[in-house]
Amino acid sequence: MSWFNNPKTPKTPVGDKQLKIPEGLWLKCENCKEILYRKELEKNLNVCMKCNYHFRLSASQRLGLIYDNGVYTEFDNNLAAIDPLKFKDSQKYRDRLKNSQENTGLKDALLNTQGKLGGYEMVICAFEFSFMGGSMASVVGEKLSRGMERAIQLKIPFMSISASGGARMQEGLFSLMQMAKTSAAVSAMGRAKIPFISLLTDPTMGGVSASFAMLGDVIIAEPGALIGFAGPRVIEQTMKKPLPEGFQRAEFLLEHGMIDMIVNRGQLRNRLVQILNFFNSQTAGYAGKDACGQCLTV
């Protein structure tokens, strides 16, 4: 009676489809299927008015929402990948890079920026998911490290906004080693007492979650974000059983003690300012002379 045992087709992960919100006046929420008026959705920070589903944002959209008046300066935007492995599958790595560069207008999958948040000067590195799935290879690792080192040098807080499938396989071991490199930079920030806020958005997986992203002093996730080490399909195949409801979603991680909080996009800026206030308080006298005490600027 094989029809009883028909294998369930694994659910397509929510998120792969709404990378680009289709053009038009109206669109459908991928989660609750509600028809939404685009202008209203944008006014609501691309969060579904009905089910609170957080649509993916580009790196520049995110930074625009977080920095004071959306103003920031970009650094190291002249860094570009070369192809150390001469990697080629169905397509050359060089061609994949070129396509992503044309589609996003960026050279690689990360923006390294500096600006003010609630009056505090800070460094924010934000992933661009639509650039090869936000994958981390040499350029991303280098820019993250430079961002963290700049935060150390200027004694200002550092924040990362992750949206990544993990390490980029087209740069092989170079990509894997970016995990070590960025984690070492986090360790350096720790010793310099630089506050590190890590924001995890949909998705934060593999080599990104298994390195700097899970090392924040404070870890914040967006509602519903997929966060984990191995991909759900791989785990399902390994375990040979269906995954629990809500597995690897932000709420699941909160429940298991892996993150500090889940914050709605609309409340994020306020929450970040609260956190920065704590770290920058001039009344705290225990942090020692190396502490990040000069963060408050004007």
Partner: peptide, 19 residues
């Protein structure tokens, strides 16, 4: 790549070792 491994923070454990 297991369910329990994810529940107990596989990513966090690896990341912490690196740091």
């Amino acid at each position: 790549p297991g369910i329990g491994a994810e529940e107990r923070g596989q990513s966090q454990a690896i990341a912490e070792n690196l740091m």
